[in-house]
Design a binder for these strands. Structure first.
Lengths: 110, 110
DNA sequence: ACAAGCTATGTCAAATATGACATATACGCA
DNA sequence: TGCGTATATGTCATATTTGACATAGCTTGT
C-alpha cells in the first residue's frame, strides 16, 4: 500500500496495519473476552448454587441488581475487576476463580 | 452496641458491623489483591523473559512507560483489566495467566 | 386477572482508571 | 565527568466504569 492510500484510509478513520497484526490483536481480544465470560459464568453458577437472587448479590457486592445482571450477561460495560470482586464477595474462592478461568470455552467462529 | 452509639459512630463516618464481617471483607480484599499482584509479577517476568523494555511494552499495549511501571509495581490505580490485557499483548497465553493466578503467593501479615 | 418476586435493558451523573507528560533516580559506558 | 537508556513516581485532563434508577418481561401462586 502506498502512503497516499494509507493517508486517505486513515483520514477516513481506519487503522492501517498488516493482516498478521490484525489477527494477533483479535486473538488477544478473543482471549480476553473468553476469560471475562468465564468469570461471568462462574458468578452465575455460584449464585445459583448458593440460591441467591441478583438483588441479594448486589447487596453483598455493594452494587445494584441491574449491574449484577449485566455482569452475568458479560455486558461490555463490566470490568474484570468487578466480576472478580463479585465472585469473591459471594464466597467464591480464588481456587474456584482459577478453575473457571482454566476451563474457559473457546469462542466459536460465527 | 446500642443503636444510639451505632448512630453516633456512623455520623462520625464509621461503618458498623460485626467482627466476622470485617474479617470476611478483609479476606476477600486480600484474595483480590493477591491475584492482582500475581498478574503484576507475571507481566514483569514475561517482559524480562522477552527482553523488552517498559517503553516497548507500552507501545504494544497502547499505553505509556509510566503506566507499565505502575502495573508491575501493583499500583492501586491499575485495574486487573489492564494487567490482563497487557500480559496478553506481550504474548502471554491464557494458560500462563491461569498458572500465574494459581501460584499466587499469600500476603504475609505485617 | 392480579400481585409479588426475579431478571433484563437502557440511561445518566458521579466515581474511577487511563495515557500523557514531567521529572527523578540509577546504571553502564566512553 | 557527561550521555544515553531504563525505571520509578507524581499530576492531570479525559475516558471509561459505576451504582442508582426506571421500566419491561417473565414466572408462580392466588
Amino acid at each position: 500500500m502506498n502512503s497516499a492510500k494509507k493517508a486517505r484510509l486513515e483520514a477516513a478513520g481506519w487503522k492501517v496495519g498488516t493482516v498478521a497484526e490484525f489477527l494477533e490483536l483479535n486473538k488477544q481480544e478473543a482471549a480476553f473476552v473468553e476469560m471475562k465470560l468465564a468469570l461471568a459464568r462462574c458468578l452465575h453458577a455460584l449464585r445459583i448454587r448458593r440460591k441467591l437472587s441478583q438483588s441479594r448479590v448486589a447487596e453483598l457486592v455493594g452494587s445494584s441488581q441491574s449491574r449484577v445482571a449485566k455482569m452475568e450477561s458479560g455486558d461490555p460495560s463490566v470490568s474484570v475487576d468487578l466480576l472478580l470482586r463479585s465472585v469473591l464477595a459471594i464466597g467464591g474462592s480464588p481456587t474456584e476463580v482459577v478453575r473457571a478461568l482454566a476451563s474457559r470455552k473457546k469462542l466459536t467462529p460465527a
